[in-house]
Design a protein around this nucleic acid. Structure first.
Length: 257
DNA sequence: ATGACTGCCTCTGGCAGA
C-alpha cells in the first residue's frame, strides 16, 4: 500500500501536473497540501475520472488540504487539529483508508521569527503532539504525513548557514519535531536515508533547483504498527523539474499489505 | 545583494510562501 504526500502549491495552477503524477505513480492514498482553493471550487470530478475519491478542507486564497484514495471513499475521522476552537486555518484532515489511519497536515511556516506567526507554529506543534499521542494509543497502523515545515537536522538542508535564521530550523521547531519521534513515531524517509542529503523542497528563486539547493520538510511519520510494515519510502524528485512544477516534490511510503 | 520566483484574488499590487 503506497501512501503519498504532495504540497502542490495551488490546485488550480497544478491541475495537469497533479493528474499526471497520479496516473504515473498510482498511489493508494494521496495527501495534498496548499490546495489554495475554496471548497466549492475543488475539482473532485477530475479525480473521479481517473479513479480517485476525495475529501477536502479548503480555504480562500491559501492553505487547504485534501485526501485522495484510489477506488475507495476515504472515511473522514477528523477535520481541523483539536485544541484551539479559534483556529480557522485549513491545515488538518484525517481519514481511514483500507485499514490505515491517514493524517494529512500542513504545518504553519512560522516566518518571520520571532513573532506571532512563529508563536502560532509552536502552539500548533504542541497541539499536534497531543493529537498524535491519542493516535498512538489507538495502537493501529497510522501515518501522519504532510508539509511539516521543519528541517529536522543539519543533514536535511543544503546550507545550514543560509537557513540559520529561518523558522524551519530554529531549535524550538526542531525540538518540537524531535518530541514527536521520541513519543514513538518513525520518520520513514530518515530511517531509510540515515546519512541525510534527501530534499523534498527547492525554492523557485535563485536557481535553487538547478543548483540542488533544497531541504527536507515533507515528512511521513509512522506509528509502531505502521513501521512494522515499512517496505520503502522515497521522493518523486523528477516532478520538481517539470514544467509548471510545485516547489515541493511528492514523497511516499510503501507499507506491506 | 534591500536581489532572485510563483500563486492567489484581485484594491493587477500586496500578501504569503519557505
Amino acid at each position: 500500500m503506497k501512501i503519498a504526500s504532495f504540497n502542490i502549491n495551488g490546485i488550480k495552477a497544478r491541475g495537469p501536473r497533479l493528474i499526471e503524477w497520479l496516473e504515473e505513480t498510482r498511489p493508494d492514498v494521496a495527501c495534498l497540501q496548499e490546495i489554495k482553493s475554496q471548497d466549492e471550487n475543488f475539482p473532485a470530478k477530475d479525480f473521479e475520472t481517473i479513479g480517485y475519491r476525495a475529501i477536502w478542507h479548503g480555504q480562500k486564497g491559501f492553505n487547504g488540504v485534501a485526501i485522495l484514495a484510489r477506488d475507495v471513499e476515504p472515511v473522514e475521522m477528523q477535520r481541523r487539529l483539536p485544541g484551539d476552537d479559534d483556529d480557522e486555518q485549513a491545515r488538518y484532515l484525517e481519514a481511514d483508508v483500507k485499514g490505515v489511519r491517514v493524517c494529512n497536515l500542513y504545518l504553519p511556516n512560522g516566518n518571520p521569527q520571532p513573532g506571532p506567526k512563529f508563536d502560532y507554529k509552536l502552539a500548533w506543534m504542541k497541539r499536534l503532539r497531543a493529537r498524535m499521542q491519542v493516535l498512538r494509543e489507538l495502537e493501529i497502523p497510522c501515518v501522519v504525513l504532510g508539509d511539516f515545515n521543519v528541517i529536522p537536522e543539519d543533514k536535511d538542508v543544503w546550507s545550514v548557514k543560509a537557513m540559520a535564521s529561518d523558522a524551519l530550523m530554529q531549535p524550538e521547531s526542531r525540538d518540537a519535531y524531535a518530541r514527536l519521534l521520541n513519543d514513538g513515531w518513525v520518520d520513514a524517509l530518515n530511517t531509510l536515508n540515515p546519512r541525510g542529503g534527501v530534499w523534498t523542497y527547492w525554492d523557485y528563486q535563485a536557481g535553487a533547483w538547478q543548483r540542488d539547493h533544497g531541504f527536507r520538510i515533507d515528512h511521513l511519520l509512522l506509528s509502531p504498527q505502521a513501521a512494522d510494515r515499512l517496505v520503502a519510502a522515497g521522493v518523486d524528485k523528477e516532478y520538481r523539474g517539470r514544467e509548471k512544477a510545485s516547489d515541493h516534490a511528492p514523497v511516499w511510503v510503501e507499507l506491506k499489505e
